[in-house]
Design a protein around this nucleic acid. Structure first.
Lengths: 318, 318
DNA sequence: TTGTATGCGTTATCAT
DNA sequence: ATGATAACGCATACAA
């Protein structure tokens, strides 16, 4: 396969001149430019971007770390990231981690080894202390609030959860529980903190049984409702941190003959199309916008912290 | 940043020896190995995989071309691909194309430019004739039946559609229409061919109005049902090529007071959790398995054609 | 068992 | 304007 030297030889010029033509640099006679172009054509030359990366010290690729791709929350984030990446001509390298720490490390190692220029963590299970040292190898961007010297785009989960709780309170719900993906992680911990603060300010005892974790998909909603069915002391409303699970709860509840929201108030999160279709009251999360912001932060060198705001969409499950 | 030469100097050995240690090659004295290891530690050396790629002529990365990531069909395919990629230590470069041909070309150009070793097309809008020439630059794998000299993993859409039509016929549906993502593309054309063959063998006239395209999400189902509502001559059953749309149709129908399947039979495709939740009769598509197969084909050098089989899941919408 | 020298394909520097 | 040459960092055939 022809390389830049072959082209140079064929065109009767130096490799430098060929490189100039290739990269649209000035200072090359039209005559020689044509000769080079002809030689490229004749030899079927194609640039080896790998060599370019090595020489330039950059790959123009960004790593995306997320636990699952088959989940609407991350899919929406990814969509925004991909759209923005197209604008800046960045390529995306995907790391589907299943929340396994060693998979996250793989992404960081790739950053270290100069296979990617930057890395976006849509979510993580690794401790920040293991991620932090990798910052010296390239930009690392997080999708959660941090206090460190990192770029991030975030939603103030504490405020949002608190706002949702107040809304439920105004609607006269008294026994509020919540569903969440996992108990750990900044975002989850912020929500739990809001929940506990809310309860204690009202002198309501904290009830561990009303917190349901591992809630990601519709089936998880089914499971949650079954669990509630077995309880003697049932919650009368649930904050459900994703619309898929909320939909699962709603559909299962209706199948079971429950009246929503009379028997159980349901507040979703995301404002996914399914929430609109099922008329689920939810918190609209601007995920695609967040994705775009994350990518922009990944390619800029300064540290930037960006908060995005959410809005409550009133529908019929509260 | 230290490179392999620095390490060699520090350890008092040659770069070859360092390389041997780095790649676990035999023939290196334990003593020198330790010296190298120490030098690596001391210098904070990290391998530049970009240089490795250039030297080896491979990147161990595979491009994934798909129109959307926020769609369960492609998300499931991607999940399978990602799982298998992990096994073989391949990295994934994502191309979200929105079915824009020039985005597909970008992936092919990356193959040409040696940034990726292979490329998987989960779906495409480009003509095969524009893709085909790129085969000389690396393995290209398709997710549809081809007659060319390419590797692919496929579902016999003609057979599947025919099977579904026969099933509907047995269940006494007479006026069958269908919903599809897009009219073009091999898979869609195969389905249309089956549909037309079925109709003509029964001497049933073909009715363009009963074919609904641009059906990907739940809302599209809503739209379809609205359209049907305005028809004087309505279909009595629909083959819906994805469960999301099928769910949208079902939910909208129920909201409108229709009886399913009496007023409208609905057959989904994919067997997504939502189909189970809503008890939608559907065709189970082994998407994750297909994804895994696609990745394996991408990393092997021989041409391989693999068919996967599907099964009909009887539930309550037919 | 180890080292030398060369190749991988480009970009960048510095003359001219 | 153009070219020679040195990086970029690693792998490896071949020699010893």
């Amino acid at each position: 396969m022809a390389n830049i030297r072959d082209v140079a030889r064929l065109a009767g010029v130096s490799v430098t001149t060929v490189s100039r033509v290739l990269n649209d640099h000035p200072y090359v006679q039209e005559e020689k430019r044509q000769a080079v172009l002809a030689a490229i054509e004749e030899s079927g030359y194609v640039k080896n971007l790998n060599a370019v990366s090595l020489s330039r010290g950059k790959t123009e690729m960004v790593g995306i770390v997320l636990p699952f791709t088959d989940h609407s929350y991350f899919a929406a984030l990814l969509k925004g990231i991909a759209e923005e990446a197209r604008i800046y001509s960045k390529k995306l390298v995907l790391f589907q981690t299943d929340y396994e720490s060693d998979q996250e490390i793989k992404a960081l190692e790739m950053l270290k080894h100069k296979q990617i220029d930057a890395c976006i963590f849509c979510s993580r299970s690794s401790e920040w202390t293991v991620i932090e040292p990798y910052q010296s190898y390239g930009q690392i961007v997080m999708c959660e609030e941090m206090h460190e010297n990192v770029s991030y785009t975030f939603i103030d989960q504490y405020q949002v959860f608190m706002k949702a709780l107040h809304y439920l309170e105004r609607k006269a719900f008294k026994r509020i529980g919540y569903c969440i993906g996992r108990r750990s992680g900044t975002n989850s911990e912020e929500r739990e903190r809001a929940y506990r603060d809310f309860l204690s300010s009202r002198k309501i005892p904290y009830n561990e049984a009303w917190i349901f974790d591992d809630c990601y998909h519709m089936q998880d909603g089914e499971r949650v409702l079954e669990e509630i069915g077995r309880m003697s002391n049932k919650p009368d409303a649930l904050l459900v941190t994703n619309d898929q699970t909320a939909a699962g709860i709603l559909l299962t509840a209706e199948k079971a003959g429950l009246n929503i929201p009379e028997d159980l108030g349901i507040m979703g999160f995301e404002n996914h199309p399914i929430a609109e279709m099922l008329s689920i009251t939810t918190i609209d999360l601007p995920l695609e916008e967040m994705g775009r912001s994350l990518l922009r932060q990944a390619i800029k060198h300064e540290v930037e912290k960006k908060e995005v705001t959410v809005s409550l969409i009133e529908r019929h499950t509260i």
